[in-house]
Design a protein around this nucleic acid. Structure first.
Length: 963
RNA sequence: GCCGGAGUGGCGGAAUUGGCAGACGCGACGGAUUCAAAAUCCGUUUCCCGCAAGGGAGUGAGGGUUCGAGUCCCUCCUCCGGCACCA
């Protein structure tokens, strides 16, 4: 890229040379001309069922790109990589007789737009619209075959009205565990009224057939306020006090998926834990379905694995350990090891800790138990501080540590003794209860039974604290490790002794259930989805609050709840969480009548919810809106949705792997709820998913691994670079494109220099679509030359006229058939780099053979069209066809043309090629063998040797084993 | 640490899935054309030995299976991505 600036003479911009050469000006003229013809003729407009021009006899193909977030920086070269791939597929599918839906739009709400607005002082609505216009212009310049009549942005009132509508539908739903699906909340209410579902003393809802230890309370004896709270707690969108990820710098809370190593995914700012009342989605109800659904979709293995791990299903058991008057419930995947539970650990925040700890430690408590593994632990061991003091000190220590410190720093496990004991229900042993931060409140029950003999973490803790270790699984012969986590038979385990792990689990679970000490259980790592943000630039929640704690959904006919104009949306750094929309008091204050709230007097004053939805909201259902973006009566027209989303949803979805557990999990959740409510036809939204690789760039690295911006480096001869300021050598490495490294390539520049067709070909030729590769502007010339040669093959560069031969050349004809077959196959497999290589070979060979006939060009143009649509359209038109080539069918090929009459076979001796023989394609093995052995060179080399064996692979090779 | 994925010329990458390693493109070198350059065209281009014919080595390292391994198996190294005390 350093040499880019030196290239004053762009190959295409030179005026010299023949006047009808395919150069940058001509590429520009051809491309812009056909783009306007396509726009005028509506070439890429795709009718829906029932509309004029719709052909119901064709199969459908819905091909989706991840819609871009229109940033002020404009299109990155990474965007058109995936977009070109889908463009090729769509053009090919259309030529193969499919009705192809290929839409584009804008993911326009979100944090970056708001931050950009804060920086520039211009309202995000203004900057975002401008960015959208720029993105659209850039995408259109690539000649992508999007049906632009379906374009929309998530910030359009007409769109986010339905985002709010879907949110309300989820709000008005609950999860019916017996039917394993979401149902309207009214169904739950009538079930409660009829007694089909009951409220337990703990406030949970037990459906008929579900066991409950509690006594149910009759619904009609519960007061109205409590009834509402019970109903509200059952909703799939619910308000809950949560310890949230609060990012003071961004001025908002974040979802778990948006926090990486204690920092915000966007910006890398510190994230704190903060208790806050927030809107949540009960995505955990869908954990199992989100998991099972992955089995039926054609997605990259790695992405499925990531989602599976994120959902994190574990099978095991709950076991209740009596402790004083209470019972401590633990979750374990190894109930078979319960006889080896020599102590228990609760998470530091566990609510039972305060109830259990005694006023002072017993006299027999070893001092080593009191505290270990943190600053001040030694002093606590030597003091006479009460359990309460010790626990308080430990909790303070834990609270001051980030997740990152907690998981990376610890060499020794930290924790303190609560002074309390529990009883192991299987053997009535009295075991001490500790608190330690290696046990997480957010997983399982926040409490564990510690089995040091079979768990390395427990082993480490037991060693540090001097706790007993008991093996309950016989380690394999010669095992010299610490905790044994492998297979083996039970020992020291009473009635389980002798059983292997699996049967022991089965037996102990049966025993626990029989004696009411526990039961089979499944837990998930997946947490409910935190959906509130305190930012301005997002969809307002269609909810109002009245006196006290109660909230009400806005009436469906009062949508959209329009985002108010706001002048100041700068986050107040360091302050506690506060919503930006609190700055719009006139908007916040409204009446029940105004918000069409049912069940309240019209004049009742209510306050609007001032949190907004996160950036993910709009992308959770945009693929549905594309089916019928103009539909005003519904979020998507039913018939259009059934047609385009039928047979498993979107047929091909291409986008980056960075959304593996964010957008791709969230969208599946929304889709499943909508499916349950009868609003969409498929159970999964995206049948086939594919991730394109990253387009990387070069960067320079100092000896200390720090990076140097591109413009501060000079090249000193082949492959050696120095930093201009210091004269120190720097190493060229491959890195992501970034503004700070000044190694970003702007697509506009490349198009100006070579044209869009060259750009498209280059990106597809860089390597396999799924692989990441560094951008090399230098290499683009190869694809430009290919187009020039293709042009020169049939156009006289002096006269500018089509020059075709009358009689086709046999070799060229044969190769054309092979090229058609190869390119078609490769497109189906998304192997565009090899398809392009095949076309280059064809053009090179045809040039040598003396050109193409009219009929051959006709077919070749159609093969080229998906890749270089503008040049192909130009050639098509010069052949006398009216536009557009996209309506021309994919050319046929003849199988007979794919095989040769004669083949050249390598003849190997002991695996080394020593000669080549030419044999008829249908020659039998004996004939091939004798031809090989008769070959002069082979015969000479075999002189004095014994032929042991002759291996003949028909059509491939001959290998002679001789010694 | 665990789970994925990948290591092939100077570079990007091919290789019909166990059958001629390096297709195609870039770059480089040589030649033609040109006053000259650009562009274009022709040729060479994995490395080593050799004037050549030819020979030898070679797909991250080592071992194995096989007539035959870039491809399959085992051990190890490096890079990229994900997860990370999940009981």
């Amino acid at each position: 890229m350093t040499d880019q600036t030196e290239t004053h003479t762009h190959p295409g911009q030179e005026a010299a040379g023949p006047s009808h050469r395919y150069d940058a000006q001509m590429a520009d003229a051809i491309e812009t001309r056909w783009q306007s013809v396509w726009a005028e003729q509506g070439t890429y407009r795709v009718p829906n069922p029932g509309e004029p021009g719709f052909d119901a006899s064709k199969p459908k193909f819905y091909c989706l790109d991840m819609f871009p977030y229109p940033s002020g920086a404009g299109l990155h070269v990474g965007h058109p990589e995936g977009y070109t791939a889908t463009d090729i597929i769509c053009r090919y599918k259309r030529a193969k007789g499919f009705n192809v839906l290929h839409p584009m739009g804008w993911d326009a709400f979100g944090l970056p737009a708001e931050q950009y607005a804060i920086q520039t002082g211009v309202h995000p609505a203004v900057t975002t619209r401008k960015a959208i216009d720029n993105f659209r212009r850039q995408l259109q310049r690539f000649g992508f075959c999007y049906d632009w009549s379906r374009e929309f942005a998530t910030i359009d009132e007409d769109y986010y009205r339905w985002t709010q509508w879907i949110w309300l539908r989820i709000y008005h739903s609950w999860y019916d565990r017996r039917q394993d699906k979401a149902r309207p909340i009214e169904v739950l209410i009538s079930m409660l009224e009829s007694g089909e579902a009951r409220v337990t003393s703990s406030g949970d809802i037990a459906q008929q057939g579900e066991e409950s230890h509690d006594h149910a309370q009759p619904w009609d004896r519960i007061d109205t306020e409590r009834r509402k709270s019970i109903i509200d707690n059952a909703r799939l969108a619910y308000l809950a006090e949560q310890t949230v990820n609060w990012c003071p710098k961004l001025g908002t809370v974040l979802a778990n998926e948006e926090v990486i190593d204690g920092r915000s995914e966007r910006g890398g700012h510190p994230v704190l834990r903060w208790p806050l009342k927030q809107w949540m989605f009960r995505i955990t109800s869908y954990a199992d379905r989100l998991l099972r659904g992955l089995d039926d979709v054609d997605w990259p293995h790695s992405t499925k694995t990531m989602q599976r791990e994120w959902i994190g299903r574990s099978e095991g058991a709950y076991i209740d350990f009596p402790a004083g008057r209470r019972r401590i419930r633990v979750f374990t995947t190894r109930p078979d090891t319960v006889f080896g539970a020599t102590y228990m650990v609760l998470a530091p925040e566990h609510p039972l800790v305060d109830e259990l700890m005694p006023e002072k430690y017993g006299d027999t408590v070893p001092r080593s138990w009191v505290a270990q593994g943190f600053d001040g632990a030694a002093e606590l061991r030597d003091s006479t501080v009460s359990p309460m003091g010790v626990i308080g000190a430990y909790r303070a220590y834990v609270a001051g540590r980030s997740d990152l410190e907690r998981t990376t720093d610890d060499k020794v496990k930290s924790g303190v003794f609560t002074g309390a004991y529990a009883i192991n229900p299987v053997n009535d042993e009295r075991i001490p209860i500790f608190i330690a931060d290696y046990v997480l409140m957010g997983y399982g029950t926040g409490a564990i039974m510690a089995v040091p003999g079979q768990d390395q973490r427990d082993w480490d803790f037991a060693e540090t604290f001097g706790l007993p270790i008991l093996r309950t699984v016989q380690p394999t012969e010669g095992f010299d490790g610490k905790a044994f986590t492998g297979e083996g038979h039970a020992i020291n385990s009473g009635f389980l002794d002798g059983l292997e792990v699996e049967p022991a689990k089965t037996k102990i679970i049966a025993w626990l259930q029989e004696h009411k000490h526990g039961k089979r259980a499944i837990t998930y790592k997946l947490r409910d989805w935190l959906f509130s943000r305190q930012r301005y630039w997002g969809e307002p929640f269609p909810v109002v609050h009245c006196e006290g704690e109660t909230h009400h959904g806005v009436g469906f006919d009062a949508l959209p709840v329009v985002l108010p104009e706001l002048d100041d949306y700068t986050p107040i750094e360091g302050a506690e969480p506060r919503s930006m929309l609190d700055n719009a008091p006139e908007w916040v204050t409204t009446s029940a009548g105004d918000a069409h709230v049912e069940g309240l007097p019209a004049g009742a004053p209510v306050r609007r919810e001032t949190n907004t939805m996160p950036g993910w909201a709009g992308s959770c259902w945009y693929y549905l809106r594309y089916c019928a973006p103009g539909c005003s009566s519904r979020f998507v027209d039913k018939a259009a949705e059934e047609y385009w989303m039928g047979e498993g949803g979107v047929d091909l979805y291409i986008g980056g792997a960075e959304h593996a557990v964010l957008h791709l999990l969230y969208a599946r959740f929304w889709h499943m709820v909508l499916h349950d409510l009868g609003e969409v036809s498929s159970s999964e939204p995206f049948r086939k998913l594919f991730h394109q690789g990253l387009i990387l760039s070069h960067a320079f690295q100092r000896k200390d691994k720090s990076l140097v911006p591109m413009d501060e480096v000079e090249e000193r001869g082949e492959g050696t670079y120095i930093e201009t300021a210091t004269g120190e050598p720097v190493a060229q490495i491959i890195a992501k494109m970034s503004k700070s490294l000044k190694n970003v390539v702007n697509p506009d520049d490349i198009i100006e220099e070579f044209g869009a067709d060259t750009f498209r070909l280059y990106e597809m030729y860089m390597g396999p679509l799924e692989a990441s590769a560094p951008w090399n502007t230098r290499d683009t010339i190869g694809l430009y030359r290919f187009l020039q040669r293709a042009w020169r093959l049939v156009i006289d560069e002096e006269a500018g006229t089509l020059t075709l031969r009358d009689a086709p050349d046999d070799g060229t004809e044969k190769l054309l058939h092979r090229t058609i077959a190869k390119v078609g196959e490769d497109i189906e497999q998304l192997s565009f780099n090899t398809a392009i290589a095949a076309m280059i070979e064809f053009v090179n060979a045809a040039s040598k053979a003396g050109g193409l006939s009219s009929d051959q060009l006709d077919r070749f143009a159609r093969v080229l069209a998906p890749f270089a649509p503008h040049l192909a359209e130009e050639l098509w038109s010069r052949l006398g066809h009216p536009p557009s080539i996209v309506d021309a069918p994919w050319p046929a090929f003849d199988d007979a043309m794919l095989t040769d009459d004669e083949v050249e076979l390598p003849v190997q001796i002991l695996g080394k090629v020593r000669a080549k023989i030419t044999v008829p394609a249908d020659a039998d093995q004996k004939a091939v063998e004798s031809l090989a052995l008769q070959n002069e060179r082979i015969a000479a080399l075999l002189e004095g040797k014994t032929v042991r064996k002759v291996i003949i692979v028909p059509g491939r090779l001959v290998n002679i084993v001789a010694n």
